[in-house]
Design a protein around this nucleic acid. Structure first.
Lengths: 198, 198
DNA sequence: CTACCATTTGAACGATCGTTCAATTACGGT
DNA sequence: ACCGTAATTGAACGATCGTTCAAATGGTAG
């Protein structure tokens, strides 16, 4: 028994990625076997290797894709906003929350599975994260130089803000007391005050 | 060959805990074998079972102990502070950063290894975390009712603050540009502004 | 219809895992 | 010195892991 009726390589590829993403986020990379991913997709473990060279590449690819997509999406969003640092900060906060709340599993692995990357992949992921963080740094630096934001450490304050925003992804669930829009607004308030805006 | 000269059960117990803590934090629970922990300590894997019923108990114990110690330490600290919410908030922020910067591995596993707990242990850990979070909630609620802090969501704002504080543990290293005391002061500034102070 | 490529299976390899337990040795108290 | 308990070893069990690959089957184009 081999190839099955109706098999579709492109669909299988997508299914593998999405199963891996979900299972890695839920149980952790090391705790999820290739057999478990395969079972979830409905194939045998050996089939996965037609789509990924190995387990590590599967994880790295998921993480790197996420960060690249994030950056591309941010750039698109940024292009729609006026150059004013206050408007950009608002935009960043809302974007970050909205984008990540739609990709909770990606956020999880992007932050929690760094330990499972081999050095080369770790470096690539770190570099991508760093460039995203630098976007917020630039906004804060511009706002501070215009006297709009309080003068703070422009390397540390962005880290603080992003950590705070990312915290949402650990507890938020649709159907709770607060809507996604509520969260955006609440956290925008936190951030605005934190940087010294009303 | 069996018991070795100079063996000391109490020392071995301590060594096992500290090796497990370090390795779990560094590589993740699922990625670390009992053999690796044993090797680190200088015994065989079978020896670990004199000290812990199983691997899961080792993890759960590390996490639960940490949270219990944290709460005890916080209560001790709190007893030294006047009842003023502003003073208490300051105290909480400095305490949280100082305490956790001395226990980076514990923080790591307390947040990153929840997924690897069996339901019963998960519940116990969640309960302990929740009671710590409630301490900050109480401070904020008191400060808001006295008009000292801006009126915000007293469930969400503490989560935001703790997430932000915990972010420090992912990047701080001694010997960098900022000292621990610098970090405390910087983050206290963030938090004070965030709650509408200063 | 045929040939070729795509897709999948299932068996197997070498490796490691969590855990158990009988045997061995060390230590301390009487 | 002797005995009982503590501490450790090392072998082994049953299980699972990541990965490879030859064989088998499906689908499509000419």
């Amino acid at each position: 028994m081999a190839r099955k009726t109706g098999s579709d390589g492109q669909k299988t590829a997508r299914d593998i990625r999405s199963a891996a993403l979900r299972l890695f986020a839920e149980k952790g990379y090391a705790a999820v076997s290739m057999r478990e991913i395969a079972r979830d997709v409905g194939v045998q473990a050996g089939a996965l290797y037609l789509y990924t060279p190995d387990k590590q590449s599967l994880l790295a690819d998921l993480m790197i894709s996420h960060l690249q997509d994030l950056m591309a999406a941010w750039k698109t969003e940024l292009a729609r906003v006026e150059a004013d640092p206050v408007a950009r900060l608002d935009c960043f906060v809302r974007f970050h929350i909205r984008y990540h709340l739609q990709r909770i599993d990606e956020v999880f692995i992007a932050y929690m599975e760094l330990r499972n990357l081999v050095p080369e992949n770790f470096t690539r992921v770190e570099t991508l994260r760093r460039s995203y963080e630098r976007e917020l740094e630039n906004i804060l630096a511009a706002g501070q130089s215009l006297g709009q934001f309080k003068s703070t450490d422009t390397r540390i304050t962005p880290l603080a803000i992003i950590a705070m925003l990312n915290g949402v992804m650990t507890w938020f669930r649709d159907g709770g007391r607060l809507s996604r829009s509520d969260i955006e607004t609440l956290y925008l308030g936190h951030v605005r005050r934190l940087v010294g805006l009303a």
